[in-house]
């Protein structure tokens, strides 16, 4: 066995195989290291028993919302988790219908030349750094909202900027999901004499559904993980917002703001929120993967 291994290493391919496999093992080790470090940094926060309530601090923090006063040892993450969810849902609520209609436009209405230009624009915007979107939101959108409902930096501003950021992704993924629907289905709908609107709404959209949903979920994951744009326009006050015009602080912004000076249990709480965020994003990606696989199966089937 040993001799065979050595013999293997003597050939060029054997050496390549061994060294590249080693590299790959390094990649797996990297993931383990990342998880290990996040866990170990978050550990003090995850296990510490809250003396007042006797339960695990993480759960009391999540459920009972004692507020976020890290310097006094009160780490209520609930308002920020809610804010993160609100920003994400709001952005999806705006970007999904708009992006979907733009996908329909790209696939069924736009002329070839215009569609190419439009795609180029969408790709360009998908590549613009989030900090530039944040800058734009801060200097254009926020003053504009301030005129209307001060203070301006608010849940609404965050939702608008974020929806602008994920719109290109949703539009492009829905267009490609629509494009992957088998041709025959469309021809069949035309042959049945369905009007154009019905072709699209009743035939094409349901057929492309899982692809569109998968793209949307990925966009949601991105919205949840987005830091800079939201940090710059959301106002960053830790509270559960009552209206769209109140400032909020999301989980990611909290990490970016406090990491620079956090020590001890405070630092651990930031790592714990990072871990939490990662788990949610993984969950979303997994859902998108399952749905995307279904779409591919469908496309292959016909």
């Amino acid at each position: 066995m040993m001799a065979k291994c050595l013999d293997h290493l003597r050939s060029k391919d054997g050496r390549w195989n061994a060294s590249l496999a080693l590299l790959t093992a390094g990649m797996v080790a990297l993931l383990l290291t990342i998880l290990l470090f996040l866990m170990s940094e978050a550990w003090p926060f995850l296990i510490s028993a809250d003396t007042g309530h006797g339960g695990n601090r993480l759960f009391t923090n999540l459920l009972q919302n004692p507020g976020w006063y890290p310097l006094e040892g009160r780490f209520g993450l609930a308002p920020m988790i809610l804010a993160s969810l609100a920003v994400m849902l709001g952005a999806i609520l705006i970007a999904l219908p708009l992006g979907l209609i733009n996908g329909i436009y790209l696939e069924f209405y736009a002329s070839a030349a215009f569609a190419r230009g439009f795609r180029l624009l969408l790709n360009l915007l998908a590549g613009i750094p989030s900090v530039v979107f944040g800058l734009w939101g801060l200097t254009r959108l926020v003053p504009w909202i301030t005129q209307w409902q001060p203070p301006g930096a608010s849940l609404l501003a965050a939702i608008l900027v974020l929806s602008l950021m994920i719109l290109p992704t949703i539009a492009l993924t829905s267009a490609s999901a629509l494009a992957s629907v088998p041709r025959e289905l469309h021809t069949g709908a035309i042959a049945l004499g369905l009007r154009r609107t019905s072709q699209i709404i009743h035939i094409m959209l349901p057929a492309a559904r899982s692809g569109i949903v998968a793209g949307t979920i990925l966009a949601a994951a991105r919205a949840l993980g987005e830091t800079m744009a939201v940090l710059m326009v959301a106002g960053n006050v830790v509270q559960i917002p009552a209206t769209l015009f109140e400032p909020v602080r999301v989980l990611t912004a909290n990490m970016a703001l406090e990491m620079a000076y956090a020590v001890g249990e405070h630092r651990a709480s930031l790592f714990a929120s990072g871990l939490l965020l990662t788990l949610v994003v993984w969950g979303l990606s997994w859902m998108a993967y399952r749905l995307g696989r279904h779409q591919r199966k469908f496309a292959r089937h016909d």
Partner: peptide, 20 residues
């Protein structure tokens, strides 16, 4: 593993980079 790594938000990479 790669898919899992690709899903980690960038701010969390920042936390890891700082710690590691």
């Amino acid at each position: 593993t790669l898919d899992v790594l690709a899903g980690i938000p960038s701010i969390v990479y920042g936390l890891f980079g700082n710690a590691f």
